[in-house]
Structures are given as C-alpha cells and as structure tokens.
Nucleic acid binder design. Structure first.
Length: 425
RNA sequence: GACCCCAUCGUCUAGCCUGGUCAGGACACAAGCUUUUCAAGCUUGCAGCGCGGGUUCAAAUCCCGCUGGGGUCGCCA
C-alpha cells in the first residue's frame, strides 16, 4: 500500500505553530515511509478565506522545509463535491433542504482504530444528520474532507486532537459514499506556557512570528517535533533527516504538551552556535538592514567579526540586536547606576592616558590593543579589573559583554578613542 | 451539561504494550570551576509516577472508581 499523508490548513489565518507541528508529523511520516505528502488548502469558506493567508501559509511551510508533492485547493473542486452530493441524493442516502444537502445518519458502529490512541468508539444515537452542501452551494468541511481524502487516496489522516469528534461523522460519510476510510492518528494539542488554550495572548503563535524574531527554522522544527514525540535515545538535538529515520507514529504521545519558550530559545541558541559564522552573516544582515544600521554594500568582514563575538551570546535575533546596538549607534544611554558605579571621576582619571596608549596600537587588533592597554595599566600601578570594567561601560554602555579587546577591535580605533575620551570628563 | 480524549520532576520527555533495573535524559532553577564582566563550556545539586481501591510474592507499568485537565457539540474549518 502506498503511504500518503496530507496537511489541510484553511487560509483563514496565519500558519499556527500547532498546525505547523501537525504538518511536520505528516511530512515526517510520509518521508519515513517513502510515501507522498499532500498540501491541500481548505478554502471552502469564501467569506473568511484570504489570499494573503494562503501566501503566508505557503511561505511558512517552505521556510520550515516541509516541501509537498501534490497541491490542491478545494475552491477548484466545488463541482466534484456537488456531484457526489447528487449521487447520495439519488441513492436516497441524503435529502435536500432547500438548496442544502443533508446526510441521513445511518445506524452503524462508529468505531475506529486511532494509531496513537487505540480504539475510539462513539454512540451513533448522539450524532445528528450532517449537512453536506450548504445553502450557498459550498461543501461543508467534513464532506469536502472525506471526498478529497478518498479521491486523493490519502492513506493516513494525521490531524489535531480537536478533530477526534469529527471522525465518527466522517466515517458515516465514508460509508454512504462507499469509500474505505483511511487510517487515523490524532495528535495532541499544544497548550500555552500556563497549560491553557493557545491564544493570541499566549505570545507568538504564528510561524511567521518566529521567522521575524530571528529563530532558525531548523530549531523551530526540532522543538516542535519534540513536543509529543521523542527519538527515545535521550537526544534533544534532532535534525529532520534523523527524525525521518527514527520516527514512529505509534510513539507519538497522547497527552497535550505545554509550549516552552525557554526551551525553544535554548535549542535556537544551540543551532546558532553550530551554524558557521559565515552563514550567520547572511542570516543577520537583513535584520541589520531593516534597523538601518547597515546599507546594501555593507562591510561583510566587519559583520563577520561581530557575529563571531556574539554567536555564543544570543538565543535569538532580538538579543543580538540589543547587545550590538552600541556598534552601530552613536548616542547610546549609559544607565544612571552604571555611570555612578563605574564611571566616577576616580575611575576615569586614567582614561586620557589610556587613550594615548591605545593611539599607538597598530593595527587596532585584539592583541595590539591589549598590549598597549596592559602596559599603560601597569605603569600606573593599577589592576586590570579596576580599569577594564569602567572602559567597557564607556565603550558599550553596558557592564557585560565580550572580552574588552575584542570589543575594541570590532568597534574600531576612532570610536574607541572617542568614547574613552568622552567619558573622561 | 452530553459525548470523547488524556494524566511520570515547574516544563518537555524515557520507562508502560511483554509487572521485578537507586524512575533515565533535557529545559528552567541553584551552586562550584574557568574568567577583565557576561555568555559559552565543564562539574554538582534541587525536583516527579494525581488520589483511592483491587490483581500479584512484587504495580509508574495490568483492572476499576474518583479527581483534575483538555477537546467537541455550527449550513467555521
């Protein structure tokens, strides 16, 4: 049997991280079985479906690396749904209510075997007749879904747990149509940090938000797959390729998982650390351009030096931009408490001489600046720590950051000297 | 409310199917080492089987009940 899965978002909103994880499991499962992955846009609700959302969904899927083998839009297939509805009408399995078509609920065993949960059974008495075609001629979700899954020969329907109670209704439609139902697997939902329902208030929920905030797609994908699934060998860093090798749908958890931004950030930091600095330059450049900090023809080597300095000090782009702002902006504020604590008259009185000493550093490298700096500090009988911290504040506006001399090298001679002198009185 | 699903550290999880390993790992948190600060790195620590009944020589693991959480009850998807 050929394995075929599908992800079927409706373009009534951005691609949600919950949806992304469902898509991810479908993709991984198809790939792990040598099967095919279908992307089907469920845009039967003409009112709420928007072109911009469709574009955003496609873009997010591509960004995540979840390429599809087949693509469909339900709005192209309305005629097909009407034909099947007519068939049910002709066979007496459905009845008309004005222009609408409604399925007579057959008496049947509404039982199915869920690949993740095992046997799930519903009482057919509790399920009402189902609308198949709405009064406006468009198909309902369940009807279009069943017709498509059957015609597209979807072998495994992997979807969110919120669809579990749709399954018995759809089973009835399969039976009426005379189609064999696919295998079902309902993956648990993702909860917010507090364990409640994911909502706008829960923070970033759209995949595009994570892209904008400077997360690496590999990190997001890695995080999402770990929410409800584990390779089982204590590995946390798992590539898509490794996941495909180890994936088993039966090993997917049954219980809902709370989203953890701190773990996602940790994973992102891990991926950031192992990404070659050269590649990171390209990753970071668009964000710097957007800030207006660099132009189109920026000094690639300089950005490379900066990236190398901060690669281990950031979990996302926001942190990077915050910590490197002093390199691109002239007027940064030194917080009042730091000014008082580290830039007192006493502490800055050697600044003039330090500036003079640094003037001789040529080239203005980490090694040369450090040598000149140390020499001057020793001559004055001071300790390095007494001078290093005040100077860092003068240069960066912060008391934390990379090594002082690496910072100087990347800041450049002119700005370094200027800022030291400026702070000395 | 009815129906359905679920339940291991604060969080994500391994272990459950095929009862017997100090219940393992990761994030977070705390401490130490390193260091011009921070980060990274290394080491250590803290912390869990929801409750109650069974079955059994033995239960996180099997069964039942309870409690708790979640989902669905649209001519939305």
């Amino acid at each position: 049997m050929t394995i075929k899965t599908r992800f079927a978002p409706s373009p009534t909103g951005f691609l949600h991280i919950g949806g992304a994880r469902t898509a991810l499991f479908n993709w991984i499962y198809a790939r792990s079985q040598g099967g095919r992955f279908v992307l089907r846009i469920e845009d039967t609700d003409m009112e709420r479906s928007k072109e911009e959302y469709l574009e955003e969904i496609l873009k997010s899927m591509t960004w995540l690396g979840l390429e599809w083998d087949e693509f469909y839009k339900q709005s192209d297939r309305f005629e097909l749904y009407r034909q099947y509805a007519q068939k049910l009408l002709d066979e007496g399995k459905a009845y008309a209510d004005g222009p609408a078509v409604i399925l007579k609920m057959p008496q049947m065993q509404l039982k199915f075997f869920d690949l993740i949960r095992g046997e799930v059974e519903f009482d057919s008495e509790t399920i009402k007749d189902q609308v198949l075609i709405k009064s406006d001629g468009s198909p309902t979700y369940s009807f279009a879904c069943v017709v498509d899954d059957a015609l597209m020969e979807i072998s495994h329907v992997i979807r969110g747990e919120d669809h579990i109670s749709n399954t018995p209704k759809q089973l009835a439609i399969y039976q009426a149509l005379g189609f064999k139902p696919p295998k079902f697997a309902h993956v648990p939902l993702i909860m917010d940090e507090e364990g409640g329902r994911m909502s706008k208030r829960s923070g970033a929920t759209a995949v595009s938000d994570y892209r904008k905030n400077g997360f690496l797609p590999e990190a997001l994908v890695n995080y999402l797959m770990l929410l409800g699934w584990s390779p089982g060998d204590n590995q946390e860093i798992v590539s898509l390729q490794a996941a495909v090798k180890k994936f088993s749908i039966k090993k997917v958890n049954k219980s809902a998982a709370a989203f953890s931004m701190s773990k996602l950030k940790w994973l992102n930091a891990e991926y950031l650390k192992k990404t070659p600095a050269e590649d990171l330059v390209d990753f970071v450049a668009p964000f710097l351009k957007e800030k207006g900090w660099i132009s189109e023809d920026y000094d690639r080597n300089r950005i490379l030096n900066i990236v190398e300095l901060y690669q281990n000090r950031m979990a996302d782009i926001e942190e990077f931009l915050q910590r490197t702002a002093y390199l691109f902006q002239e007027d940064f504020e030194v917080p009042q408490d730091l000014r008082e604590r580290l830039l007192s008259q006493q502490q800055t009185r050697c600044f003039e001489d330090l500036a003079k000493a640094l003037e001789t550093a040529e080239p203005f490298s980490k090694e040369k600046t450090e040598a000149a700096f140390r020499c001057c500090v020793e001559e004055k009988g001071l300790k390095m720590s007494e001078v290093v911290h005040p100077v860092r504040v003068a240069l960066t506006g912060s008391d934390v950051g990379p090594g002082l001399f690496e910072t100087m090298a990347v800041l450049g001679k002119q700005k370094t000297l200027q800022r030291i002198q400026l702070a000395s009185f």
